Lab assay of single mutants.
Amino acid sequence: QVNIAPGSLDKALNQYAAHSGFTLSVDASLTRGKQSNGLHGDYDVESGLQQLLDGSGLQVKPLGNNSWTLEP
């Protein structure tokens, strides 16, 4: 069960990665100043990332080996 409060997208993504045990490689300029609506409930990694990114204009991309990145 994930419980991440709304706020900074950077912070939300870092909390989610730490909670879910995956690696997220992101260029900080992509997420700077963006906000997230947070995340509450049970999600697989990709669904949770998509939910956190909702409205940010960013997309999640798998890199393999439980690693992910973001792209515009």
Rank of each mutant, 00 (worst) to 15 (best):
V26M: 11
S47K: 11
S56K: 04
Q59C: 14
L49R: 01
S47P: 04
G57K: 05
S8D: 13
L24P: 03
V45M: 06
G57P: 00
L58Y: 03
G57N: 07
L52I: 09
L49K: 00
W68H: 01
Y43M: 07
T69D: 04
Y16C: 07
L53T: 06
Q15E: 14
L24W: 07
V2L: 09
E71G: 06
P6T: 05
A18M: 12
H40I: 14
A5Q: 11
G21E: 06
L58P: 01
Q50S: 10
A5N: 08
L70H: 03
L70I: 15
S29E: 13
Q51E: 09
S29L: 10
Q51W: 08
Q50K: 14
G41S: 02
G33S: 06
G21V: 03
G57H: 05
Q15K: 07
S8E: 10
T31L: 14
S67T: 14
E46Q: 13
S67M: 13
F22K: 02
E46N: 07
W68P: 01
W68Y: 14
K11M: 13
G21Q: 07
Y16R: 02
D10A: 12
D44W: 04
Q15R: 06
N37D: 07
A5V: 07
E46C: 15
S25R: 10
H40P: 01
G55W: 04
D54R: 15
Q59F: 11
E46A: 12
G41K: 04
L52W: 02
A5Y: 08
E46W: 15
T23K: 09
W68F: 13
G41Q: 02
A17H: 03
G7W: 02
S36C: 10
P6N: 03
Q51M: 13
S20V: 15
F22W: 02
P6K: 09
G57D: 06
V26L: 09
G48T: 04
S20I: 14
K61F: 08
S36I: 03
P72G: 07
N66H: 07
A5E: 12
G57A: 04
G41D: 03
L63A: 09
V45E: 02
L63C: 11
L9F: 02
P6L: 04
P72Q: 09
L24I: 13
N14I: 14
V2P: 05
V60D: 00
K34L: 12
P72L: 13
E71P: 01
L70V: 13
Q51L: 14
A17I: 07
L13R: 02
G64S: 06
D54Q: 15
G38F: 02
N3A: 09
S47Q: 11
S47H: 10
L63V: 08
F22R: 00
A17V: 07
P6A: 12
I4N: 01
N14E: 15
S67L: 12
